[in-house]
Write a protein that binds this DNA or RNA. Structure first.
Lengths: 237, 237
DNA sequence: TGCGAGAAACAAGTCCGACTTATTACCGTG
DNA sequence: CACGGTAATAAGTCGGACTTGTTTCTCGCA
């Protein structure tokens, strides 16, 4: 069936990341030497070096000569890969507290973003949004595809906000979400409610009703918070 | 004088990043082959591979067999290194439009963060904040050191908000700021005003006056926006 | 006894050259 | 013109050697 041939360096990096995120090695400790890791995983040292480079770029580790690669506090990285590792515990279950922190901030950002979209959208932006919501409506019965399309919708709103950083954030969130697709199995009830929410938001954006858009987003996120956290807490026992 | 011996792979990566951020190579293009880069920079291919790995982890590039390393849209990365490259143009000057996008979002996040800090702070949090502001007050005449201490203050507020993601964001911002230290030369007027603002904010946090804290942050960021953007626009000609 | 200079050990950083593997492009055959 | 096989290519992996910056140990001197 042929796995897509993931590179060995990435596999090793993920394995080391898991150990760091789950606290098997504490900040301040050092990873095994490159030579030792090469032997442990049965690969060449250059492969280990590339794995370590990945961790280093993510801010999880810092190589220092003659000492080894020292582990840093994993809470300092924003990369989706690290977020994923921090959000999921050793048993593969979502930590509801971390998730709550996440939602708390995202809700506020969405309020701002939708408000800006309502204030600044062009007619072209609106057309793109309407197409996106039509595609959403056609997918309410297919949770996996719906999730991807919802990310596309969020990206379109970000574009309509005319703030480049929101576009960047939307892509970032998309990556985080992709990693989680398997965790948040959307129910039909959820997709229908989400789609309905999007339709109302588009109307607000069309009418340039900034305050209405903001209020709608607030309400929507209240619902998200209840739903997601309830299900995460239920599973987290 | 001895430069701190930056690794060749990092130097090369920065050089390539600069070219990508400034559009010398467009998304969809491919970088030169590893062998060609190795020759161009006079290093071994493994060094080039590590440089490419860095770009790849930052989401700027994706290696594909038999084609080369293809360049992606740099607007998809949140890493401070990339932000820096996008925020500064070829002449080393800050792009005021990108900066405005940045501030727009940060202002909203700060309003939320300070509000949460006022609502949730413990007595310990308050003590740490008060120490931090004392240190700030002692540095109003030393712009460089003041900037670093201001980051520490922001980190303390993030901790007081009791949302882990704010702590992560504060560190992220700290890294972005570190890269910019040389660009934003703070005037004495700025440090004094900032310090005074922090004192007022601490009072609001002490009294748990959520709305007051939020209003103060809004006012403060209005001032920041005017000041920073005015100076960035002046230089950007 | 204590302390500083020098030697050794160590781990990351760099280099070399070869081989492997996946993918693309080319080419000759039906 | 379609098709299948083959060659070319660039990333991925390998192994082994050498370099460089640190730490630590040791030894001789004050």
């Amino acid at each position: 069936m042929s796995t897509p041939a993931e590179r060995k360096s990435d596999l090793i990096a993920r394995d080391l990341l898991r150990q760091i995120a789950h606290g098997d090695v504490a900040p301040g400790d050092t990873l095994p030497t490159e030579a030792a890791l090469a032997e442990r995983y049965g690969v060449n040292r250059s492969v280990v070096r590339e794995a370590n480079k990945l961790l280093e770029v993510h801010g999880l580790v810092q190589p220092v000569r003659r000492r080894g690669t020292v582990v840093l506090d994993p809470a300092g990285s924003l990369s989706p890969m690290v977020m994923h590792a921090l959000l999921v515990d050793a048993e593969g279950q979502v930590n509801p507290e971390v998730l709550a922190d996440f939602i708390e901030i995202r809700a506020e950002l969405d309020v701002l973003m939708y408000g800006l979209a309502a204030a600044r959208r062009t007619d072209d932006d609106l057309a793109v949004l309407e197409q996106a919501v039509v595609r959403l409506g056609a997918l309410v019965d297919e949770p996996a595809a719906y999730g991807r399309e919802a990310s596309a919708f969020a990206l379109a709103v970000a574009a309509a906000s005319h703030n480049r950083l929101f576009v960047t954030l939307a892509r970032w969130h998309q990556q985080v979400y992709d990693d989680f697709e398997e965790l948040f199995s959307l129910t039909r009830q959820a997709t229908v409610a989400h789609c309905q929410g999007c339709r109302m938001l588009i109307e607000a954006i069309r009418a340039r009703e900034v305050e209405l858009a903001r209020r709608l987003v607030r309400g929507f996120h209240d619902w998200v918070r209840e739903t997601l956290l309830a299900s995460a807490r239920k599973e987290h026992r």
